[in-house]
Each structure stands twice: as C-alpha cells, then as structure tokens.
C-alpha cells in the first residue's frame, strides 16, 4: 500500500503530457474491459447475437450493388461477381464508419462515467475502435464465404489487407474525436454524423474504383474527380484494401500516400483538440 512505487502526480492547469501517456498505458486494462463489456452486452439477450454485426455490412452490400451495379452499370467487366467486390469495399468502410461513430459519441455517451471518475478519456474511444476492429475481422468470414461460393481464389496479398485495418480504424477514430470535441458544446452535431457517413459511402470508392470512375466521367468534371481523389481521406485506404483483397485491382500508391498524409494531419489535430477539451469538458456537460 504505502511505500512501493510512490509516484508523484502533479495537477495543474494545462497539465503534463508525459503523465497523461503514462496513465494511458496504466489504464490499458480498462480499455480491454470496456471492449469486452461492449461485446458481452451486445450478445446477451439478442437472439441472433453475432449476426447483428454482420447484418449491417451485408445490407449495405445489397444496397450498393443495386444502386451502382444494377442501376448505374458499374463493374461489368470484373472477373469476380460484382457484389463480392462491393463487399470487399464495404468491409473497410464499415470499420471506418463504426470507429468514427463511436468516437464521435465518446464524450457525451460516457459523460455519466467521466463526471464521476478519472481515467485518460482516450481509453474509451480506443476501446470502441478495438471493438470495431474485431467486428471487421468477423466480417472477413462473410467475405471468404462469398468468395468460396463463387469459387474465387483471392490473391495471396489479401494478407496485406489485415494491417491496413489499423490505419482505417485510426482514421475513423480520429475524425470521430474531432467531432466529439465539438459535440460537447453543440450537441446537435451528433445527429449529423449518420448523414455524413451516408454521403461518404457514395463518394468513396466503396462500390466502384477510382480508375473506373475516371473512365466513366471521360475526362469530364475534373474538379469533382480531384475533390474525391485528394479531398477524401478514405480514398487511398479503400483502394488499397480492394487491391489487396481482389485480383485485377490496381494499387494506387499516390492515393494511399495521400491517405496516410491525411491520417497524420487528422490524428495530430484530433489529439491536440481532444487533449484540450477533455481536461475540462466535465464542467460543460
């Protein structure tokens, strides 16, 4: 009890960053327990349990296949059935949007906890991101099932898609954190998140590839294309994921590099903002 590691904690306005990261490490167990809580709560008292986390990407796949494939005629010349390639796009997008959603609600949804006990506030969005990551891994089962049913052998580089999940989850989390810091003062922003993600799903190469889109546009709307290419942080990561998971897709190194630049910028901004807001947000909620 007394004795042992008698570490000093300094509490003052502005705080100490080193101390914060040390605490974050100390509370890693809490992140684990929070993630586990989210899982066990989700699967207790639900009849189809696990299936819930799969249903969402499946329905999305159906919708996008209908809109882009059947209505707009995308993906006519791909060697894999179009809906399989759409699912390969939906999987990372679902991870991104889940990570973003939970991170954006982290301060308000956990306010009851955060007004009563201290822990580095980053623990909670990180735990949620971990849950989203595990959901994504479960979705791979569906992807492999769909591929198997169509006797499609994915390229060996599909293994590269696993490490890609990390920056995708991180990007979603960081964007979510930026929103979280704003929702403390303007709660209504939370209602916007589903709409933004809905839009994002259609302007990100989830159900199409950028190459195919460029071809379709035939050089028209160059500004629109550039906006989607340079202005959407998810473009490069989506493209890279589909390249890894499917044969015949090309790797766009420039787009991927752009995504990582975006990630670095968003992460830096998110951390600065979040650290600033988390110090005293309890006074406002």
């Amino acid at each position: 009890m007394a004795g042992g590691e008698q570490r000093k904690t300094v509490i003052e306005a502005g705080g100490r960053n080193l101390q914060y990261w040390r605490d974050l490490w100390h509370y890693r167990g809490l992140a684990f327990h929070m993630a586990r809580r989210d899982f066990s709560v989700r699967y207790k008292q639900t009849v189809i349990g696990l299936a819930w986390s799969l249903l969402n990407p499946l329905l999305n796949m159906l919708l996008l296949s209908l809109v882009f494939g059947t209505f707009a005629g995308f993906g006519q010349d791909s060697e894999v059935p179009y809906y399989v390639s759409v699912f390969a796009g939906v999987l990372p997008w679902t991870l991104f949007s889940r990570a973003l959603t939970v991170a954006s609600g982290t301060l308000l949804n956990n306010a009851h906890l955060m007004t009563k006990v201290y822990f580095p506030r980053l623990v909670s969005p990180l735990a949620s991101a971990a849950t989203a990551l595990i959901d994504a891994l479960i979705s791979y089962l569906i992807l492999f099932l769909l591929m198997g049913v169509n006797r499609y052998l994915p390229p060996a580089r599909i293994l590269l898609s696993f490490p890609l999940l990390l920056p995708i989850a991180l990007l979603g989390t960081c964007l979510g954190l930026v929103i979280a810091t704003m929702t403390v003062r303007f709660r209504d922003l939370n209602n916007l998140v589903p709409y933004l993600l809905q839009i994002g799903q259609y302007v990100t190469p989830v159900a199409f590839s950028m190459a195919e889109l460029r071809e379709r546009l035939g050089g028209g709307h160059p500004k629109l294309f550039a906006a989607l290419y340079y202005g959407n942080p998810m473009t490069g990561l989506e493209t890279a994921f589909k390249w890894a998971a499917l044969r015949g897709e090309a790797l766009d190194g420039k787009a991927l590099a752009l995504s990582f630049l975006w990630l670095a910028a968003v992460a830096a901004f998110a951390l600065l903002r979040f650290r600033k807001v988390e110090r005293t947000f309890v006074d406002i909620v």
Binding site: I11, T280, V282
Partner: peptide
C-alpha cells in the same frame, strides 16, 4: 480536482502515491 475529473483553473496540486 483532486481526483483529476476536471482541471484547476489556477494553482497546483501535488499528490504522492
């Protein structure tokens, strides 16, 4: 303030342990 739920506006607290 002592339990670090929110930060002080001014001043400094040192805790040992």
């Amino acid at each position: 303030l002592l339990s670090r739920i929110t930060e002080p506006t001014e001043g400094r607290i040192e805790l040992t342990g």
